[in-house]
C-alpha cells in the first residue's frame, strides 16, 4: 500500500508531469505568453501561421468585399498557399471560373489579361 500513497513518489511524479507539460509547450510547440493573452481576440493568430501573401489575399478580398476568389495556376500548385488560402479565407470561397485572378507579383501577367491592381505581394488580374 505504501507505493500507492507514498508522498515522495507523488511529489516526483507531479514534478515529472509539470516538466512534461513544460517540454511539450516549449520544445514540441511554440508556446508564447503573448498568444495566450490575445487568444480570444477576433481574427487573431493568423500572423503566426500564414505567409504574408496569404494574409494580403484575405485583407484584399475583405476590402473588395469578395464572396469568391480565384488564384493563378502557379499559386494553386503551391500546396501550402492553396490549402491555407482556402481554409483561412472561408467563408470567402475559391472559384476557378472567376475572371479576376490573384497572381503573385513575381509571375508574368498573361497576354490578353489586364492588371487591375498591384499590392505588396499579389496582383489582381482580369482575364
Amino acid at each position: 500500500m505504501t507505493f500507492l500513497i507514498n508522498k515522495k513518489i507523488k511529489l516526483i511524479v507531479i514534478i515529472i508531469i509539470f516538466l512534461q507539460l513544460f517540454y511539450i509547450s516549449n520544445k514540441r510547440l511554440d508556446f508564447e505568453i503573448q498568444i495566450l493573452k490575445k487568444s480570444f481576440l477576433p481574427e487573431y493568430g493568423a500572423q503566426f501561421i500564414m505567409s504574408n501573401d496569404i494574409l494580403e489575399l484575405k485583407e484584399v478580398s475583405k476590402k473588395l468585399k469578395l464572396n469568391e476568389f480565384n488564384i493563378s495556376k502557379s499559386l494553386r500548385n503551391n500546396v501550402f498557399f492553396y490549402q491555407r488560402s482556402i481554409e483561412y479565407l472561408y467563408p470567402i470561397k475559391i472559384n476557378n471560373n472567376l475572371k479576376n485572378i490573384f497572381y503573385a507579383n513575381s509571375e508574368m501577367t498573361p497576354i490578353n489579361c489586364i492588371e487591375i491592381n498591384k499590392y505588396k505581394y499579389l496582383k489582381l488580374i482580369k482575364c
Binding site: 510547440l29 498568444i35 472561408y90
Partner: peptide
C-alpha cells in the same frame, strides 16, 4: 493543457486543413 492550447499557434497540417477547417465551415 487548456492554457498550453491557448498559448500556441494552430499550425498542425491536418488540424488546419481538415478538422478546424470543417469546424469553420460548420460554424459559418
Amino acid at each position: 493543457i487548456i492554457i498550453i492550447a491557448l498559448g500556441t499557434p494552430t499550425n498542425a497540417w491536418d488540424a488546419r486543413s481538415i478538422w478546424l477547417f470543417k469546424a469553420k465551415q460548420i460554424f459559418y
